[in-house]
Each structure stands twice: as C-alpha cells, then as structure tokens.
Computed example of a mutant assay.
Amino acid sequence: MDAAVPGERLCRHRRRPRLRDLGADPGGVEPHRRRRQPPRSWRTPRSGRPAPSTSSPTSTGPTPLVIDEGALARIEEAAASVDEERLDQRAASVEESDLITIVYTSGTTGRPKGCAISHSGFLRGIDGPLAIIGERISASDSPSTVLMLPLAHIFGRVIEASTLLSRHVLVHEPDMTHLVQAFATHRPTYIGSVPRVFEKVHASASAAARAKGERGAKVFAAAEATAVEWARTDSPGLGLRVRHALFDRLVYRKLRAALGDECRTIISGGSALSEHLSDFFAGVGPEIIEGYGLTEVGVTSANPPGRTRVGTVRGAHAGHPHGHRRPG
C-alpha cells in the first residue's frame, strides 16, 4: 500500500490487455477527463498531500494512510488482532496475477498516473537486477544501504525490494539536507540514489576546496582530472599511479568519508548520470552501476558490475575504454 498519493487526485485505473503479460498497467485515467468525480475522501489538495477524509456513513472511498500522520502505528495496531492462521490463509490465497502495488508516476512530464503491477510482474522485475548486482551489494559482512531513489518509480521499488529480500539493512532518507548526517550515521556499504545526490556531493567538495583559496581549488581540479583519467584506463602508468595515490591521501579519502567511509557501490537511477561524474566517483573509489526502469510496463535493468559502459544500462564487453577501476 502506498502511504501518500502525489498529484491533485488519486487516479482511477482500467486494464490494458496488451500490457497485462508484463505485469503492469499504465492506464491511469486522468480525473479531468471523467465526468463523475471520485469520492471526496480520495481527493487531495494541490500540495499533493491527501486531504482529510470525511467520516460520514455515505463516504465510499478508502481513507488515505499517510506515514507522517501515524499510518504505520495504525497498521500495526490493526494487525495485532490478526492471528497466524488467518495470515497464512490470506497469503496462500494470493495469485500471481493479483495486484501487489500501484506505483504512481512522479508527474514530471504530465499528470501522475497509477501503474498497477501484479505479483508476477514485480517479481520478474526484481529477478533481473538482483541477478546482476545481488552478489556485489551482498559482498560486505553487514550489507546496508541508504536509499534515495524515488519510490514513484519502478526502479526505486525494485532496489528497495531487492534489499529487503537480501536481508540487508535499509534506510530511507528523503531529505537531501540530511545526507551527510545519514551517511555518517548509517555508514552504508552501497547507496541507491538519483544523480542529483552525487552532483551535490561533488559540488560541495569543490566549493569546500575553493573556500581554501586558489591553491585548494587547483588541488581539487587536479585530483578530479586524475580520478577521471584513472577510471578511463585499464593499465595506468607509473605517473598516474603516483598522482592517484597522492590525491587519495589529500582528496579521495575525504570524499569516501562523506559517503560514510564504507560505500563500495553506487547505484544511480531515475535519470542519466553524466559520464564525467560517473568516472569521477569511480576514480575516487565506489563502483558505479547505472539502472533503468520504465514504470508503465514494470521493466527494469542495470549494468553488470565489472563490465560497466557509462551512459548505458546494458552489459558492456570487458576491456571497454570506460571500464571503471577500483583504487589499488
């Protein structure tokens, strides 16, 4: 169940048979094209937050559950009266074609739509990325992640579910102003986020260097160029190895510390990560894995670790000139 519904109103849905085999349905009907308006309790103000529902006996719509307004406590309280036998019966009655979730698109390119996804479609969406990145994200003794991928997108949902199925520690951090604190507190071994977060980390490091004066700015610029060069070669020469080791002491270890000092893998999704920024972070230390998801049909994919091709989400041949290296 989605706790909050973006957009002006919760969208109604209808099935589109041509996409049913993929386990997803992009057929949210825009409310302004419907003559009959949804029940009042389903409407939300323009801020995007669900409006208080009416409690009259004639109200037919469900009451929205909002996490920030105690939804989890209400669910826990309601679940206390459900015994194990009833729980087992309900679980056994679930069919592969049954609805598991409705993912609401973000609305950046139009009104938000609710994409209905079945159990089988969602699990198929998990199988691919988990088979590709599962071993890498589980490499640590205590795998954990701080997840900042939007859940109004199928790729974020898939990474979230993959983390839970792998029994890793999962931390959601929706507020970018608390990033450094979240990384320092939870020390994630891998991070799933939109490119904006990594752009912000890079910009903050660059600004801190410039604040130290001209010398600090030059050191950071040289360190950045060295990191990019390191990421784009499979056989660094002696000079590059010396420069990389020097800047690892001066710059890179501080950037790794800003990510919690335990991060070995970065999963970027939601939009394209620039080639320069991808190579920069790969040269600093973490391996970069780019992911893709099409919410409307439940399709997800990710780059195979060790065979990354920057700017794509398909497998790349070993030895590609943009293959990322770890510091050595």
Rank of each mutant, 00 (worst) to 15 (best):
Met1Pro: 06
Met1Val: 15
Asp2Phe: 07
Glu8Gly: 05
Arg9Pro: 06
His13Cys: 08
Arg16Cys: 09
Leu19Trp: 15
Leu22Trp: 10
Gly23Ile: 05
Pro26Ile: 11
Glu30Tyr: 14
His32Arg: 10
Arg35Asp: 04
Arg36Met: 13
Pro38Asp: 01
Arg40Asn: 08
Arg43Lys: 14
Arg43Met: 14
Ser47Gln: 01
Gly48Cys: 05
Ala51Lys: 13
Ser53Phe: 02
Pro57Glu: 06
Ser59Gly: 07
Ile67Phe: 15
Glu69Pro: 10
Ala71Asp: 11
Leu72Asp: 02
Arg74Val: 13
Glu77Thr: 05
Asp83Tyr: 01
Ala91Arg: 15
Ser93Asp: 10
Glu95Ile: 01
Thr101Asn: 03
Gly107Met: 12
Gly110Trp: 08
Arg111Gln: 08
Lys113Cys: 00
Gly114Thr: 03
Gly114Val: 02
Cys115Phe: 09
Ala116Phe: 07
Ala116Trp: 13
Ile126Gln: 15
Ile126Arg: 10
Asp127Leu: 10
Ile133Lys: 00
Gly134Glu: 04
Ile137Arg: 03
Ala139Cys: 10
Ser140Leu: 09
Asp141Gln: 12
Leu147Glu: 01
Leu149His: 01
His153Ser: 06
Phe155Gly: 08
Arg167Ile: 07
Asp175Cys: 05
His178Ser: 05
Val180Gln: 02
Ala184Tyr: 00
Pro188Ile: 00
Gly192Thr: 14
Pro195Cys: 04
Pro195Ser: 03
Glu199Gln: 12
Lys200Leu: 02
Lys200Asp: 08
Val201Tyr: 07
Ser206His: 11
Arg210Val: 09
Gly213Met: 13
Gly213Asp: 07
Gly213His: 04
Arg215Trp: 03
Val219Arg: 06
Glu224Asn: 05
Thr226Ile: 12
Glu229Cys: 03
Ser235Lys: 15
Gly239Val: 13
Leu240Cys: 04
Ala245Gly: 04
Ala245Val: 04
Leu246Met: 10
Asp248Ala: 02
Arg249Glu: 11
Arg249Tyr: 03
Arg253Tyr: 06
Thr265Met: 02
Ile267Phe: 12
Gly270Leu: 09
Gly270Trp: 06
Ser274Trp: 06
Leu277Pro: 07
Phe280Gly: 01
Ala282Gly: 13
Gly283Gln: 01
Gly285Tyr: 11
Glu287His: 13
Glu287Val: 05
Ile288Phe: 13
Ile289Val: 12
Thr295Tyr: 03
Glu296Asp: 15
Glu296Leu: 09
Val297Gln: 03
Thr300Glu: 04
Pro304Thr: 14
Pro304Asp: 07
Pro305Trp: 13
Arg307Asp: 07
Thr308Phe: 11
Val310Ile: 13
Val310Trp: 01
Ala316Glu: 12
Ala316Phe: 01
Gly319Thr: 10
His320Cys: 09
Gly328Arg: 13
